[in-house]
């Protein structure tokens, strides 16, 4: 009985964390798949979502409205970055785009540092984020269940969008061969804007749960999400959307697993292990651990 409970507990934790990681990775991979841009500023979209929670949450608005507004702000920020910073360098080399995103990331982080505060700010989160429920002797945090459900629903909706709409198949086609997609008359700006909008949406969604975990926000809050997204999308094979999702879940399981298995002394080096794995993967399986999916892309 106890054993079963442990396993269930592990599954819920891993699936909820993995779901969040999958959303993070998908947001990064989507833009990469089309523009071949590793968007370092992706983490700062999570930050924008976090500070929006802080700002809108200060008023009397109900939390759900605050949450919607925050996600919206992340989308707007993502679209704005595309228009102002990335579009002018789109035809330049991949390195130029990359460095631009690095600069944008620094810009936004220091903007928050300057305009808000370098210190940690407490964010109001609804009580269910910190509440637990007991189901049959199992202690489950409500926020874990929520993130588990939200990530699954989001992934399902995105899959439908990518498979059932013309814009969705244009996005997948552009990831295959962008020039050919344009030769069919699909507007480049439209496809890229759509990718950035979805990327911003996912970052905003992630921000809700990421901020909810600690009920606080700092300018550097985006660093860990973007690192996780890197790792997960490399595991999935850069640019494969299905791979990114699978990589996210795998990373979630790995993280929760290592947390339970590793002794404290080695736990400190967990991040180093994780990135060591990333390097090995890039060397020996650049197509990702969960490859073989590219040809029959499921998402």
């Amino acid at each position: 009985m106890n054993m079963v409970n442990d396993i269930l507990q592990f599954l819920i934790n891993a699936l909820s964390l993995g779901g969040l990681y999958a959303l993070m990775a998908l947001g990064l991979a989507l833009v990469y798949s089309i523009l071949r841009l590793i968007n370092f500023a992706y983490g700062e979209l999570v930050m924008v979502g976090g500070y929006s929670l802080l700002v809108f949450g200060a008023g009397p608005l109900p939390w759900i409205i605050v949450a919607l507004l925050s996600v919206l702000m992340a989308i707007v920020a993502s679209l704005l970055l595309e228009r102002v910073a990335f579009r002018p360098v789109r035809d330049a080399s991949a390195n130029t785009m990359l460095i631009t995103s690095f600069a944008v990331s620094t810009l936004l982080q220091n903007g928050a540092l300057l305009l808000v505060s370098p210190r940690t700010r407490a964010v109001r989160v609804p009580s269910f984020f910190i509440e637990n429920v007991t189901v049959g002797g199992l202690l489950i945090s409500k926020s874990n269940v929520l993130s588990l459900v939200v990530s699954l629903v989001t992934l399902a909706i995105l899959t439908l969008f990518l498979r059932r709409t013309v814009l969705g198949s244009a996005l997948r086609a552009a990831a295959d061969d962008f020039v050919m997609t344009r030769l069919l008359g699909v507007r480049a700006n439209q496809v890229i804007a759509a990718a950035f909008a979805i990327s911003g949406f996912l970052a905003g969604l992630v921000a809700l749960f990421w901020v909810g975990r600690t009920a606080s926000v700092v300018p550097q809050i985006g660093l860990n999400p973007v690192l996780i997204a890197f790792v997960a999308s490399v595991i999935g094979g850069m640019g494969s959307l299905a791979g990114a999702v699978a990589g996210g879940y795998l990373l979630g399981f790995l993280t929760v697993g290592l947390n339970t298995v590793l002794p404290q002394g080695l736990l400190d080096f967990r991040q180093a292990f994780l990135f060591g794995i990333v390097i090995l993967l890039l060397l020996f399986r650049p197509q990702g651990l969960v490859s073989g999916m590219q040809s029959t892309e499921r998402i």
Binding site: V166, S169, A170, R172, A173, D176, D177, M180, T181, L183, L184, G185, V186, Q294, S295, T296, E297
Partner: peptide, 26 residues
């Protein structure tokens, strides 16, 4: 004006129908 380029450049991950529908993107 439509160009069918060298080496075909179909979208291998998309279904035949999706390829055709994208042809009518405009």
């Amino acid at each position: 004006i439509v160009l069918v380029p060298e080496e075909r450049r179909i979208f291998p991950g998309l279904t035949v129908e999706e390829n055709l529908r994208l042809g009518a993107a405009i």
